[in-house]
Design a protein around this nucleic acid. Structure first.
Length: 807
RNA sequence: GCUGGUGUGGCGGAAUGGCAGACGCACGGGACUUAAAAUCCCGAGGUGGCAACACCGUGUGGGUUCGACUCCCACCACCAGCACCA
């Protein structure tokens, strides 16, 4: 009889769903816990091929671990706030609430069709007030612990959409929604003190099991750098001290080579020094011009250095008393360190270019050829060159001078050792409707006032107009009844904060909620959090992985410190799934309309085939081009599996198959654990090939094989198990194997003379090294090859190779 | 530019320092069939040879080793992330 995948797959999917087959049990009395997490679905439409690639290995791991006797938590939920629902609302007028409700239903139904073994009772959605109550609660804690503050900062703003955008939504200086140019504006912003957590985040990164390139990207984002901060006294043209300039440097060894200093044009110190600047008009003009250029423009022409001299001012280099001119220049970033640099044109490419343009002298302080370009730190440090023109440090190796010069400046009281980070505090508000409202009241008398916990959730009011107004105020500002309120502190009329939280908020703690998704007393019960602990394996795409994981680390650290959760590390292991590319090797996306839907594949070939095919194409972390090529091979494999029930002969494991079955068992344990599904599938195919060759399979062999294949192809294996064994495959445990069965009784080895293969011989695996060597030397071809030569060395790698070295 | 990763047949891709190319696709040949599809069997890295066989082969060039896709050094190409971070 033929395998009818449509009927059979539906039967099992309904059964699993209705019987809650994959329910995770809190505090299971006997089984150890295992927490498998797949990233939130972004609620925007249908599942795509990336989901098939990303979810199946997690599902296979979850199913495998259940057989292995674990109490597995494998939940799913939706990230529903943000752009997709809001855009749909603006375009069609559908309330985002409805868009999300439909969207959730769609992705959950489709997940069911992928045969995913989620615990459906724990499904959560970020835009559900029961969920965002706790997102708001976390914000309240941050605010009450001084980790959230409001400040005027520069933000990306799209004049067309009239909304603020994150850096990510405005890459390349273009608005991600409409493609128009983004401008920078100063606005009131909510910020979270993430920078304070830099060292703790680096600790999280060290402890997590994650691919090295992903870890590197995160360290790079944090951008830790060790150096020295030096104070330079500022003088006016009457040689009066009028201020101090703090400058951070990682190259303190070049301090004798400073020939100018440069400040970011936006640096507020420039305003303070205005009375002493004799060419203020020029300075103001330059500041105005740079302010007009977008950040993108400034970054794009790195070659052309511009700036303006601050006439009437100079600073004194504390190392040698040299008077040094001051500039403002847009190559200096206002946001990093003190927003000022000490410039050493001989040893820094940017300083070199600037000095060339403004005819500033160069003082070489480290040996090397500086005739055409600067000798950079990397070069002189790796060669460990010697110092020049640096007073008592002349002739000293750079490495040593680096320490000694810093020591000297510190002793003089003009410097301190310092660590800087590129990572800034997290800008946490958007002028958008579809996000979590801040639980904050703005009172003229009391400032920003937190709501009381008992007033949470602060529910997002229904509105009709989802667009920000002309000034770019949040759409919520139009919801008068909601906005106008009473200050909880002084009782006078006040207004609510009308900005909402960014899309990242809800996804920065959701793994904690799965542990106890319906709790209305706490974000999750502490004892349950303790039981489930860190996520054992967290899977998902790599697209936003750097920031998402850092935000997750940040919040978990904070929650740990205030005693809300029992662990500092949210995830023990994070796997980043590769992309499914189109046939031209480009990313599959909805916008480029080249996507093949996983549902389309499932309709045509069935879920089991689709699951196997996608993962036979390549490894979990690799990008693999999509193709239907090869899917026939998978279909025929599934058909061959189905036909195994026709050739059952015997009960126990046969001596003919004990080796193959044991090897397969071991291989699959490794591969499921490491999400290496492509080689797992290959091993399963090899086994079926062997069975087909021999023409029979025993009942126990088939029983074990079905369990082995079940994590990958759960439907067909469940059906066959029921038919042949009249019981539920999910109630079975993973079969044990005996180590001694991993070795065949005889094996073919290659025999080499002088590393060249002469012949291949079958040997008994119980033979000792000497017995093998003796046996091999009786072979005619080997005899010939070593005749009238002396044996210098004999090598035997058990069950693999013999190599006889002769002279 | 910096950082990380990857380079293996016609294609997707396998290989704890030990017989490179597992497994699969596509391909060629055969069986079954009136025929085709499906299925089953056989073949296959390249070059030369009827053949046994020989030589060459894991981006390039060197090195370590009895032995290197695997380890080390240099270089090239591609992919990803970051990018005036002082």
């Amino acid at each position: 009889m033929e395998y009818n995948f449509k009927e059979i797959e539906k039967k099992w999917q309904d059964k699993w769903y209705n019987e809650k087959s994959f329910k995770a049990i809190d505090f299971h009395p006997t089984k150890p816990k295992y927490y498998v997490l797949y990233e939130f679905y972004n609620i925007s439409g249908n599942l795509h091929m990336g989901h098939l690639k990303g979810t199946i290995p997690a599902d296979a791991l979850a199913r495998f671990k259940r057989f292995k006797g674990y109490n597995v938590l494998f939940p799913i939920g939706g990230d529903a706030f943000g752009l997709p629902a809001e855009n749909a609302a603006i375009k069609t007028g559908i309330a985002p609430h409805d868009f999300v409700a439909n969207g959730m239903k769609t992705v959950l139904d489709q997940s069911k069709r992928l045969g995913l073994s989620f615990d459906w009772d724990r499904t959560i959605c970020t835009s559900d007030p029961e969920y965002y109550k706790w997102t708001q609660w976390i914000f309240l804690q941050l605010f009450n612990h001084g980790k959230a503050y409001k400040e005027k900062t520069k933000v990306n703003f799209c004049p067309h959409c009239k909304t603020v955008l994150s850096n990510e939504d405005s890459q390349g200086g273009k608005c991600d929604r409409c493609g128009n140019d983004v401008v920078q504006e100063v606005r009131w912003s909510w910020l979270l003190r993430m920078r304070e957590y830099a060292e703790k985040l680096l600790g999280n990164i060290d402890r997590i099991n994650m691919a090295e390139n992903l870890k590197e990207a995160q360290r790079n984002w944090i951008g830790r750098s060790e150096g020295t901060q030096i104070s330079f006294k500022i003088y006016n043209n009457k040689d009066e001290n009028v201020g101090t300039l703090q400058i951070f440097t990682t190259c303190v060894e070049t301090v004798y080579g400073i020939t100018f200093v440069a400040l970011a044009p936006e640096n507020s110190l420039v305003d303070t020094l205005k009375p002493y600047i004799t060419n203020w008009a020029d300075v103001e003009e330059y500041r105005r011009k740079t302010a007009l250029r977008s950040e993108f423009d400034r970054l794009s022409d790195q070659k052309d250095k511009t700036g303006a001299k601050l006439e009437g001012l100079y600073v004194v280099n504390p190392a040698n008393g040299r008077k040094v001119p001051m500039f403002i220049a847009d190559f200096v970033l206002a946001g990093y360190a003190t927003g000022a640099v000490m410039a050493v044109p001989s040893h820094d490419q940017r300083d070199y270019e600037f000095a060339e343009k403004f005819n500033i002298p160069k003082i070489q302080v480290i040996e090397g050829d500086t005739s055409k370009a600067a000798v950079e730190k990397k070069e002189y440090l790796s060669k460990n060159s010697k110092m020049l023109n640096s007073a008592e440090f002349d002739g000293m190796p750079v490495r040593e001078a680096k320490q000694k010069i810093a020591d000297k400046l510190i002793e003089m009281g003009v410097a301190e050792r310092k660590i800087n980070y590129k990572m800034t505090d997290w800008a946490f508000n958007r002028q958008r409707y579809w996000g979590e409202p801040f639980p904050i009241v703005l009172c003229e008398h009391c400032g920003e006032v937190a709501l009381d916990e008992k007033d949470l959730p602060l529910v997002l009011p229904r509105v009709k107009d989802y667009m920000p107004n002309e000034k770019g105020d949040s759409p919520l500002s139009k919801a008068k009844e909601w906005v106008e309120c009473i200050c909880p502190k002084c009782g006078r009329p006040a207004r609510r904060e009308t900005d909402t939280m960014p899309n990242w908020a809800g996804s920065s703690w959701y793994w904690l909620r799965y542990v106890d998704p319906h709790n209305d007393k706490a974000l999750a019960d502490f004892e349950k959090l303790k039981y489930w602990g860190s996520v054992d394996c967290y899977t998902g795409g790599t697209e936003h992985i750097t920031r998402h994981v850092l935000y997750a680390f940040f919040w978990q650290n904070f929650l740990y410190e205030i005693g809300a959760v029992p662990t500092r590390d949210p995830f023990a292991r994070k796997m980043g799934s590769g992309l499914i590319l189109d046939s031209e090797g480009k990313k599959m996306s909805k916008s480029s309309a080249n996507g093949v839907s996983p549902l389309e594949v499932i309709d045509k070939y069935g879920t089991d085939v689709a699951r196997l095919h996608v993962h036979f194409l390549g490894g979990y972390e690799d990008n693999t081009p999509w193709t239907y090529d090869g899917i026939n091979g998978i279909t025929s494999f599934i058909d061959r599996v189905w036909s195994l029930q026709n050739i059952i002969k015997g009960d126990d494991i046969s001596k003919e198959h004990i080796y193959e079955l044991s090897i397969l068992n071991k291989k699959l344990c490794d591969d499921y654990e490491n999400l290496k599904l492509n080689t797992a599938i290959s091993a399963l195919m090899i086994f079926v090939k062997k069975i087909k060759e021999d023409g029979f399979i025993t009942r126990e062999e088939l029983r074990q094989f079905l369990i082995f294949l079940n994590p990958l192809a759960p439907h067909i294996t469940s059906e066959m198990y029921e038919r042949v064994f009249n019981s539920e495959i999910l109630d079975q445990t993973w079969p044990e194997y005996d180590e001694k069965n991993l070795v065949k009784s005889s094996v073919e080895i290659a025999v080499q003379v002088n590393s060249k293969i002469i012949t291949k011989l079958n040997i008994d695996t119980s033979l000792s090294q000497q017995e093998v060597l003796d046996y091999v030397k009786q072979d005619e071809k080997i005899k010939q090859a070593i005749s009238d030569k002396t044996i210098v060395k004999e090598i035997y790698v058990p069950n693999r190779i013999v190599n006889i070295i002769v002279k």
